[in-house]
Every structure is written in C-alpha cells, then in structure tokens.
C-alpha cells in the first residue's frame, strides 16, 4: 500500500506519465505501437471493442461521482448522526436498522462509512494536490532548467526517494501531532518525490520532442513553447497522475492510522475505521469489511479512471 506511491503506478501505457523514466527514455524515439497488438505477435485490430473497454471506466467514474456526492452531502445517503452512540447496542451484526452493523459504542457503521467519505477524500485529494504541486515545481525546474539546476533538483528528488516514505510521514506526524492536516501534509510530502521524477521525465520528453523542436526552429519564444506545448502536455499527465495518486493517498492514511497517527477520534475517516475494526477481525468481521470495501473501491476506481486518462493522454500527444 502506502509506500507504493514512491513511484507512481508503473507503466500503464507505453508513454504514459506513470511509466518509469528509464522506460520512457528507451521508448521516446520509438513509434507508438497499435494498442491492439497481442504480446504473442499476432496482429488483429478490433476497433469496435473500444466501447466495451470504456465500460469499466464509466463504472469507475460513476462510483467516484457517487462518493464525491456522499462526501459533500453525506446526509443524502445517510441522514443519521455518525457520532450518535447507543452503548447498549454495540457490536450488532449487519441487518435491519444497521445495514453495515454497529461498532462497540453502538454507532451505525453505514452512517460512519458514508460520513467518512468526506474526510477520507479530502485528505486524499489534499495530499495528492500537495504531492503533485511540489512535484510539478521540482519536475519543471529539473526538466526545463539549465544543466546545473537539473542536476541539483534531480539530486534532491533522489534524496527524497531514498528517504523511506513512511519515515518521512512518521516524522511529520509526530512533529505536527495527529489530525487531518498533519496526515495530509505527511502523505503529500512522502509521495512528492515519486511524482517529481515522473514529471521531470515527462517534461524532458516533451521538450525534446519533434514538435517542440519544430516550434523552436520556427523561432517561437520560450513562453509560447511553455504555454502551448509543455504545460498542456504535462497537465494531461498530471490529471492522470492525480487520479491514480488519490487511491494511494487514501491507503497511505490507513498506514498512519495503524501507527496511531491518523485523524483524531471520533472522526469517521476510513483508515481510522479500518484500523479500529482490525482488532475485532476474528470476532466482528463487518467492522473491517465495510471500511475496507470503500477504500478498495475508491482506490480501484481511481486507478481505472487514471489509466483511462493516461490512455487519452497518450493518444492526444
């Protein structure tokens, strides 16, 4: 989980932003192969299946949309109070009044999971935004700057990469104290170097591409090249990176919860719920199952969507 964000999702498509830099170097000059090629070497184009491949992406988008709505208007789906206790009705299995069961204090797990979408997605989005924001600055400096700046920034990225991500997060959390803000900053910082390396590679790739070269030959200014070519090209990569990173950020927060550094109780954040339920995993399965389901559902949907964007990105460039 968590630390996997070091380097964003490795290679979904040949020139996708998530491909490791090495791979991109190797491929930058190669023609983009048709998508439909089978690894066995046979070559059967089936353009019409494109619509079928879109279905998972549509479902993923729908799930994320529902989650975002739940995050903004949780009462639409769960009108109850996520903090309301009923000590006498603790540890009720799913069914009847409590579709996901109740926790030890008799709080309705369904309500808590739905209301947990807000903080979970907010931390996930915040952390991803912070991580990608920092990474973009580093990546642009390294990718566009003079040699010495690239060298310096690349070293910095390397240092951050070598620093175990969870250690970084752990230190940030211990310094800032537990809470949503600390968790956001911790995860954002820990994931930034992975993104930075990818963005640097992408920027260099675009900067060295034929059409940028052509623009340069035509005498276009730096600003033009930056705004018309580099930024749009990178932005598309960023969009897919961000979607992919969202899921990972949520999983990271879980790891922090496990170490006792997540959001403060009684907030219904998914990672905290999952960790709370873990000690009852053998006795009261629903306490981990439902929060876990939502985490996996979100992360997988984000992955599917992110890969979809990466694909579009590839065909657009």
């Amino acid at each position: 989980m968590s630390e996997n964000t070091r380097q964003e999702r490795p290679g979904s498509e040949p020139t996708s932003p998530s491909t490791p830099p090495h791979a991109q170097h190797a491929r930058a000059s190669q023609p983009v192969p048709p998508r439909t090629a089978s690894p066995w070497g046979s070559h059967t184009p089936h353009r019409f299946t494109l619509r079928a491949r879109d279905i998972p992406r549509l479902i993923a988008a729908l799930i994320l949309l529902l989650l975002v709505i739940a995050a903004i208007f949780p009462a639409l789906f769960a009108p109850g109070d996520p903090l309301a206790i009923d000590p006498a009705a603790g540890f009720q299995p799913p069914g009847g009044a409590h579709p996901f069961g109740t926790d030890g204090s008799g709080r309705d797990l369904y309500t808590r999971v739905i209301h947990g979408a807000g903080p979970s997605l907010l931390i996930g989005l915040g952390a991803t935004a912070l991580g990608i924001g920092l990474a973009t600055i580093l990546g642009l400096l390294a990718g566009l700057g003079p040699r010495w700046l690239d060298f310096g920034t690349s070293r910095l990225i390397e240092v951050l990469l070598a620093f175990p991500g969870l250690v970084l997060a752990l230190l940030v959390m211990v310094i800032s104290g537990p809470g949503a803000l600390g968790a956001t900053v911790a995860v954002g910082l820990a994931t930034a170097p992975g993104y930075a390396r990818i963005i640097r590679g992408r920027v260099r790739e675009i900067a060295g591409s034929g059409y940028v070269e052509a623009a340069r030959v035509q005498g276009r200014g730096r600003v033009h090249i930056l705004t018309r070519h580099i930024f749009p090209g990178t932005a598309r990569s960023l969009a897919s990176l961000a979607t992919l990173g969202l899921g990972q950020a949520i999983v990271w927060v879980c790891a922090l919860s496990f170490l006792g550094l997540g959001v403060a109780p009684p907030a219904a954040e998914w990672g905290a719920l999952l960790n709370e339920g873990r000690q009852f995993i053998a006795t009261f399965w629903w306490l981990t199952f439902f929060p876990g389901l939502f985490i996996v559902l979100t992360a997988v949907s984000a992955t599917v969507l992110g890969r979809g964007l990466a694909r579009t990105d590839r065909s657009a460039s």
Binding site: I85, D103, S105, G177, P178, G260, A264, P265, P266
Partner: peptide
C-alpha cells in the same frame, strides 16, 4: 471507545471534549 462515548455524552450536556491520541 469508552472515552469517545463520554465525549459524545458530554456534547449533549454542552461540553466539548477534544480527545487527542498521543
């Protein structure tokens, strides 16, 4: 969990308790 229950019941009395796990 018991502390969280106390926190929730205190809220009903008009007392805000902030629990910080450390």
């Amino acid at each position: 969990s018991l502390f969280e229950q106390i926190q929730e019941q205190a809220k009903g009395l008009g007392i805000a308790i902030t629990i910080t796990p450390l």
